[in-house]
Design a binder for these strands. Structure first.
Lengths: 218, 218
DNA sequence: ACAACAGCGTAATATCTATTACATCTTCGC
DNA sequence: GCGAAGATGTAATAGATATTACGCTGTTGT
């Protein structure tokens, strides 16, 4: 047997386990899904699970960190399209809402929070890879705007927290209430962007236009 | 034996169980604290636990809902002291921060979120008793202000969500990160109040003074 | 075709803990 | 003190599940 085929076979198995585990973790939670469930769903055998992931925690680690992404990419994409700060913020709000309210993301957040009680380090790493990085890139965005002469009411890192908080609070509500009376309308989103624009002071720079974010500003 | 003494005895036991359970739930989480732990800590016996609470879930129910309170009282207190809207909002921000960042509250929120996966109804009831009620009273506050001629940038219910969200996002971060790099400074709080004041449009009503909230306005 | 070996399936292990059962002891009114 | 109701402590029950062990099977390279 060549290394190649072996690698492929194992890899397919690995993928199957991960997909099955994610599906089950999301639906039942970590504690309530048993390794037996995962094997039943993915095929393969318990022995292979242990070979590939070491133990149950090992699968969780892989499942969570495969899905956990920061919003840095979203920030970059929204900024690159240019336009007024208000426009950029609105685009960003749309993609943040889509990302943070993805039911799978919310379910994983629930799992991480539950697990954080017994494994603080795990939760912290998750926080780093998601929130902290997103905050950093937002902060940078606002700092860039400041450098280009846009006046803001508060330091960039405070604004970054506030902007992200607009969406995090929804995630939190969703995590607890499981979408009772959740309103994801565009109107509501507009109101939030508007609110942030007013609160941050971006409004007064109405005609500022961020054409394209390059190494040398406008 | 009179009913009175019996009631006292059972009641003391009940209290002891609840205190012990809360202490342990907060420290270890629900799943990881065993009924044996609770009995060890509180004294008494397993049989009595079952007599009083039915089962393990029964204790959780009592522990959580005893501690779960809405912020409605805080809203009323802050409003009753009067002053400008900005002053009222700042007072409210101070007491919200104290309440929501109480480590015991955060720990209970973690437990509720964890449990919400297998018992959605439990989590919804919690949400009702805390967030929904707080939102209602905030909405009422803003609606009152509007009635008194203060102009706002957004409908009261949206503003209520936004104001509460300022603190909920902190709870969420704390729940995941377990207080890594958490900044509870007064400065940060002031920045948030300021942000809300600007965003909501309350700023333009600078000299509005809400003397006292009675049945017949000013 | 065959020998080696990686994955498979099953079963055994080992532990943990909610829940129940029961015999003993306390408490408290009388 | 006494007796009964109720609390206590202990032990048994019962079910679940992570983890390990092991013999079997199909694939693969020669």
């Amino acid at each position: 047997m060549t290394d190649q085929t072996e690698c492929d076979r194992l890899d397919r198995r690995r993928r199957a386990f991960i997909e099955a585990a994610r599906e089950l973790f999301v639906r039942l939670g970590y504690e309530r899904t048993t390794l037996g469930d995962i094997v039943d769903r993915a095929g393969g055998s318990l022995a292979t699970v242990y070979k590939l992931f070491g133990n149950k925690e090992g699968i969780l680690e892989v499942v969570v960190f495969e899905k956990a992404s920061s919003g840095a990419t979203l920030v970059r994409e929204a900024a690159e399209k240019g336009g007024t700060p208000h426009e950029i913020l609105h685009r960003l709000a749309v993609s943040f809402q889509a990302h943070f309210l993805d039911p799978e993301v919310v379910a994983l957040v629930r799992i991480v929070i539950a697990r954080s009680v017994s494994d603080k380090d795990f939760a912290r790493r998750f926080f780093e890879r998601t929130a902290t990085r997103t905050l950093d890139s937002l902060q940078q965005l606002f700092a860039d705007w400041q450098d280009r002469g846009i006046e803001l009411n508060a330091p960039p890192h405070i604004l970054a927290e506030l902007f992200l908080g607009l969406f995090v609070s929804d995630v939190h509500a969703d995590a607890i209430s499981h979408r009772v009376g959740m309103d994801n309308s565009l109107e509501r989103l507009r109101a939030r962007t508007q609110f942030f624009v007013m609160g941050s002071g971006v409004l007064e720079n109405k005609n500022a236009n961020i054409s394209f974010e390059g190494p040398n500003g406008l």
